[in-house]
């Protein structure tokens, strides 16, 4: 899985209330949620034309707060191809894996600037800053999680391997 896209930079502790504020949670329609993706961190973000295929790069503890899966769903539905962060909050991490949204923990996430082009190679555990011509090694996912990702998400995995 190779992903390439333009980088949008966010800070530390971006919480799920900022990613998708509760006032938009009276629906679970992904396209509706996508419009308000990152709304309280950067108003209007979800309605920009240039975020399709883009990569979000953030600081520590991305996705902290509520368990709302609407957060990764909104990000994915908005067309974001990957989230790179110094670290992720546990439930967000889990939700992203479960819905097949690629996320990458990278200690050097702070070296990216808005507008840089990033390339992520999940299988080989490599992240590149194409603009700055830098390359970073990342911890590959544990096998179990990689398998979920490869299958396309937890439910696909369930259907494939667990359902009698």
């Amino acid at each position: 899985m190779k992903i390439r896209g333009k980088v949008f930079v966010f800070g530390d502790n971006v919480n799920t209330d900022e990613i998708i504020p509760a006032r938009y949670l009276n629906t679970s329609d992904p396209q509706e949620l996508a419009k308000y993706c990152m709304e309280d961190a950067r108003p209007g973000f979800g309605r920009r034309d240039d975020i399709k295929g883009a990569i979000i790069v953030a600081g520590e503890n991305f996705g902290c707060g509520s368990s709302r899966e609407h957060a990764p769903v909104a990000i994915k539905a908005a067309g974001i191809s990957c989230v790179i962060a110094k670290s992720f909050a546990r439930i967000f991490f889990r939700n992203a894996i479960n819905i097949g949204l690629p996320i990458v923990e990278l200690k050097e996430a702070g070296e990216f600037e808005e507008g840089d082009v990033a390339e992520v190679d999940l299988e080989n555990g490599i992240v590149r800053n194409v603009t700055k011509n830098r390359e970073y090694r990342i911890q590959p996912y544990p096998d179990f999680l990689m398998e979920i990702m490869r299958t396309g998400g937890w439910l696909e995995y369930c259907l494939k391997t667990l359902k009698e």
């Binding site: 368990s67 889990r94 479960n98 369930c158």
Partner: peptide
Amino acid sequence: GVGSTDIAGFFLTGKVW
């Protein structure tokens, strides 16, 4: 705490990871 997909998975299989 988990997410909605975990609950859907439980509905389908009775299991969570």
